[in-house]
Design a protein around this nucleic acid. Structure first.
Lengths: 230, 230
DNA sequence: TAGCGGTATATCAATCGCATAAACAAGTGG
DNA sequence: CCACTTGTTTATGCGATTGATATACCGCTA
């Protein structure tokens, strides 16, 4: 797998590492693989860092203070935390993982494994972010961030009301939205009784985004309750 | 961190493991920590599995076929994959991680570490966040957040009254709701004496969500008082 | 064993809610 | 000014849901 790509800039890693022997090796190695790296040599520096996409934390810091950094980060962020340690104690592993770390790599480790595990962590967060922004069902794709809706790769053109309806439903796929909720959100609070509007526009939406509009697989009716996305 | 809690069911794990010595140890251990486990002894079985929240894959299968399961799963799902292996080869680790695995644990490993890494994977996929909203009993799942009810993984279709009744009962599982409470909430205050409505619709609910409707295990009668969820 | 209160099930017709079509009004851009 | 898109209204057919009635059940007691 290629590590770097001109059109997809790599994220920044925060390397918390006090041992010169380690960071003098890791810093150029990570850079060589396309990562930008912030380096902190102690907790104070680490706590001032910002803008990083993941943390590589060496527990070799004195007094076991390194572990404290895990809940500290977790207090404000969900970025992946990969712990490096020379300790062989399994309980220490479990402790760190339960504190909120995502991975724990024991020294000595090979650079390929470290790179692979960094990739895993970044890939996982990328998937989660995509999941937050993209809804997919069959050949239908809804990008909530951009508002773009495509079917079989072709962009769909939706009217403002259709768009608002679909975005609302896609904001919580699977969740049933009641008629009143949809009407209030899309048309306004005064329209919560005009369910016939809803039927018409749901019908038009289905005509555009269902393979068989008469047999909806994506935009589903909850009889007597409302609608939801599959 | 507590592993199990009667009212907050754990997700299902798919354990792909052919060695009896391993699964005879892992199956009860995982169950004891509150996980439901599907067990597949070979790839064919594994590929037929569905409904699991994560995969624990032992690479001990013959011909290195275990690795093939990783891209297979990735073809349709982002569920976490944790690989177990006796191989000490670092390249093998890197290979699996690059194929899409989320973690790689070398034998011998301790149960606490395995459990911690399972927790990490599930935490990452945010499945744990759903727990507060989900009621489970036997194969019945009620997601209060989405309003979706499934039995053995298949979504159940409920009528509006059935839905309202069940959601009300599921709002406080175990609590007895009197006939009057249910009638007032679902039908309206004028109907608190029409207990026969209740009987009919409880019966219809049971027909849909009980294994043996004639012998209810989930939606229970409190004679002379009302109904409750187990 | 029959009777009783409370509960469960079956059947069926009336009703309700939904999807669709068609027609019309309003707005937009060329 | 016209063609086109979008939003609203009305009407109709269909299927699911509901509630009424009748009947069956179950545990208990006399």
């Amino acid at each position: 797998m290629s590590q770097a790509n001109a059109s997809t800039p790599q994220p920044t890693l925060l390397l918390v590492e006090d041992a010169a022997g380690v960071y003098q090796f890791l810093l150029p190695a990570l850079s060589a693989h396309g990562y930008r790296v912030q380096h902190a040599q102690d907790l104070a520096q680490a706590q001032q860092a910002h803008g990083f996409a993941m943390v590589i934390l060496d527990l070799g810091l004195p007094d076991g203070q390194g572990e404290q950094f895990i809940p500290h980060v977790r207090g404000y962020s969900d970025v992946p935390i990969l712990v490096l340690s020379a300790r062989q104690d399994e309980l220490d592993k479990v402790h760190c993982l339960n504190l909120g770390a995502d991975d724990y790599l024991m020294k000595p480790f090979g650079l390929p494994e470290l790179l692979a595990r960094i990739q895993v962590a970044l890939r996982r967060t990328a998937i989660m972010q995509m999941r937050d922004h993209v809804y997919q069902h069959a050949s239908l794709l809804i990008n909530r961030a951009t508002g773009i809706v495509t079917k079989k790769g072709e962009p769909l053109h939706l009217s403002p009301i259709e768009h608002a309806l679909l975005m609302l439903l896609a904001s919580k796929p699977g969740t049933i939205f009641t008629h009143a909720q949809l009407l209030a959100q899309v048309w306004g609070p005064d329209y919560i009784d005009d369910t016939h509007y809803l039927r018409i526009h749901i019908g038009r939406l289905r005509a555009k985004l269902e393979d068989e509009p008469a047999n909806p697989q994506t935009l589903l009716t909850e009889l007597g309750i409302g609608y939801r996305l599959a």
